[in-house]
């Protein structure tokens, strides 16, 4: 008995302090993963069943709508290309570095309950696909969270609403930077570090600021929905609703962000590569960027 308790306590302490136990967890996860798939089976079946019995006209409507969306998005992308080029040109004038685009991997949610009080979900792509901890996870509308553990065939994603999670954000309107904390409630973020007179109003879009190095800059995170001040507190109480559909999304994008900057100025030929997701292009380029980094 004493041995078991001591062994368990030793495990807990080791797991908190060091990453050595990851191999044990990875091995055990192979035993557990089939059970998790089995557990997700009913929820997945209900989902696929409701997709199968969808009516023909509904499908047609959806198809029509998707085609329209596609057209609009294509047009926007055309503009985005031009804007990106312009952005690089302007940044050259400012002698600033420009960050590369990102590569993504689509991962599907495994309908498994981990801990109800922690907002953590399991997705079906793991270390075998090159997923590693601290990777940002998005859905079509915004930031979902980050990978906290990459197991061989699955990985655990902590959502931005988890009480243990904080994400550096900035107000899209004016660049005001702060940190958004998870509250443990679904669809609620808390911004505790802004003064009462901060320039932030309900309806403001919060985007990632790129500080901290985990989340790439510029992705939508949440919309401010409540701003309240209390006479006895020096900081405002601000709440925001995440943009991503944390509760209903089933497909997530796991992002590889390239933090090495694109070369500017001297080699205009390198610029077209910037938006083609070619990580192998950068290592030769990045050393020449060093002088530009100082403002």
């Amino acid at each position: 008995m004493l041995v078991a308790v001591i062994a368990a306590l030793a495990l807990i302490v080791t797991d908190i302090r060091t990453p050595h136990l990851h191999a044990v967890r990875a091995a055990l996860s192979l035993v557990v993963y089939p059970l998790q798939l089995l557990a997700s089976f009913p929820a997945d079946t209900v989902k696929s069943f409701s997709e199968t019995v969808i009516s023909y006209s509904e499908l047609q409507q959806e198809n029509h709508r998707l085609r329209q969306d596609q057209l609009v998005n294509d047009a926007r992308l055309l503009k985005l290309d031009a804007l990106e080029k312009e952005n690089i040109r302007l940044r050259v004038l400012l002698e600033n570095s420009f960050q590369l685009g990102e590569q993504v991997l689509v991962a599907e949610l495994v309908s498994v309950k981990l801990e109800p009080y922690a907002h953590t979900v399991l997705v079906n792509k793991g270390a075998r696909f090159g997923v590693h901890p601290q990777q940002p996870v998005l859905d079509a509308h915004g930031i979902v969270g980050q990978v906290v553990r990459a197991l061989p065939s699955s990985s655990e994603v902590m959502m931005i609403t988890d009480p243990n999670h904080a994400i550096p954000v900035e107000v899209n309107r004016n660049g005001l930077r702060t940190i958004a904390f998870g509250t443990g409630q679904a669809n609620r973020l808390h911004l505790p570090f802004l003064a009462k007179n901060a320039d932030i109003v309900p309806g403001d879009l919060l985007v990632t600021s790129g500080l901290g190095g985990v989340f790439p800059a510029g992705y939508p995170v949440a919309v401010v929905d409540k701003f309240e001040t209390r006479p006895d507190k020096s900081f405002a109480n601000i709440y925001a609703t995440p943009k991503a559909n944390l509760e209903t999304s089933r497909e997530f994008l796991i992002v590889w962000s390239d933090s090495a900057p694109v070369v500017l100025g001297e080699k205009p030929a390198a610029k077209p590569n910037a938006d083609q997701d070619k990580p192998q292009d950068k290592p030769q380029d990045s050393p020449q960027d060093k002088p530009h980094e100082q403002p």
Binding site: L9, A10, T14, L21, R25, L28, V32, E115, R149, E156
Partner: peptide
């Protein structure tokens, strides 16, 4: 612990 993604032990 592995199933629920909790602290090992």
């Amino acid at each position: 612990d592995v199933l629920a993604g909790q602290l090992l032990g």
